[in-house]
Simulated scan of single mutants.
Amino acid sequence: MSLVHRELSVNGLTMHVVEQGEGPLVLLLHGFPDSWYAWRHVIQPLADAGYRVVAPDQRGYGGTDAPPDIADYSILHLVGDVVALIHALGEENAVVVGHDWGAPVAWHTALLRPDLVRGVAGLSVPPTQRGGVPTLTSVREHFGPDFYQLYFQEPGIADAELNADLHTSFRRVMGGLASPIAGNGFLASTREVDELPSWLTEDDIDEYARQYKRNGFTGPLNWYRNMDRNWSLTAAWQGALITPPALYITGGADVVRTFYPPDFIDQLPQIVPNLRGVLDLPDCGHWIPEERPTEVTDALLTFLGDL
């Protein structure tokens, strides 16, 4: 049983997906700056266990269309893509799993369309309640003006930096991610790496660079440029709970953990009352499905088996 690459018409886009296996549908949503390839070690074990596993390149990434308008990357568009993908696959529902930016898409799909979500799992980024002020205002107050999400806001700036040398960008971001402060450019927040970590190879860097030659970084960066728009669009769900069965996976050394209060894991049941489990992986950094695929797969299979 091998990976099948194909293109589907999804919510006005031509979307590239990778598929393997038969059975209940499991969608794997990647984050930034990633692609379906982030799940390369997870897809086959899930398929072998009896699931239909589909990992798309999300809107703006890799082999999927990248609309030119920034406003076309709102959270409602991204959730709409997931809903349309489930239908395009001929399915009635799915378990939706997301890492990094894919996690908020998964959490919001479960929030907005619980009728379609048998279960939801988020890696790295936890579910959060909509804040009382616009998101970028809160980000600036908590993290200062040099936080990377603020640096990403100006169209063309981070795009040019990251597109200038795709190999260098992926080598430094994935191999040397160190800090969320990007006052002198996003790559300045990373470390130069002479030797890649054990979970990342030169072939992996080549593959990511190859996939990004089509669309570059503008589409992925446009997700960040909708953060305040997302805050406005989701006002009707202020205080709403995520009701489907849920799993959260975090890395003990993930820089994203520093974005949240120390007790954020203890607070998760207040947002996700049907939280079935939390997996906290010691010494694991941000790239959880690539760094610790065996533990991630085992946790997902346990979660799936209990649904």
Rank of each mutant, 00 (worst) to 15 (best):
H99P: 07
F217W: 09
D57T: 05
R59D: 08
A49Q: 09
L150C: 02
P262E: 08
N274Q: 14
E192G: 07
T201R: 02
H87L: 09
P45H: 11
P67A: 01
H286G: 07
R210Q: 09
V42H: 09
G277V: 08
V17K: 01
V10A: 05
T168F: 05
D266K: 09
L123H: 04
P261F: 04
L136H: 06
D34K: 02
Y212V: 00
V95L: 10
G23Y: 03
D194L: 04
D69V: 03
R6T: 13
V26N: 01
P56I: 10
T297H: 02
R214A: 06
F186D: 00
S9R: 15
V256K: 07
T14W: 05
N215T: 04
N163A: 14
L3T: 09
S169M: 14
E290Q: 14
L112E: 10
Y248S: 11
Q267T: 13
G277I: 10
G63E: 13
L8G: 03
L8E: 08
G219C: 05
V42E: 08
Y61C: 08
N226D: 10
L301A: 05
D280G: 04
A94P: 08
E154D: 14
A38M: 13
W287D: 08
L8W: 01
V193Q: 02
A71F: 00
R229Y: 07
D48T: 15
S124H: 09
W107S: 11
A71D: 12
A71Y: 00
R276H: 12
V17M: 08
G183W: 03
D206M: 07
W101V: 14
Y37G: 04
A246L: 04
M1I: 12
Q149W: 15
N93Q: 15
W223S: 01
V53K: 07
N184M: 01
L76Q: 02
E91Y: 08
L123A: 01
H87W: 11
L187F: 01
T168H: 12
P273K: 05
L300R: 04
T190F: 01
G156Y: 11
V105C: 10
R172P: 05
L187K: 04
H87E: 15
V272H: 01
I249P: 06
G12M: 09
A66I: 01
R59P: 10
D263W: 03
A240H: 15
W223Q: 01
T250H: 10
V272K: 00
R130M: 12
P67H: 02
A49P: 02
P145D: 08
V256D: 11
R292E: 15
L89C: 07
P33L: 06
L221N: 04
G132P: 13
E291S: 10
L307A: 00
G12N: 11
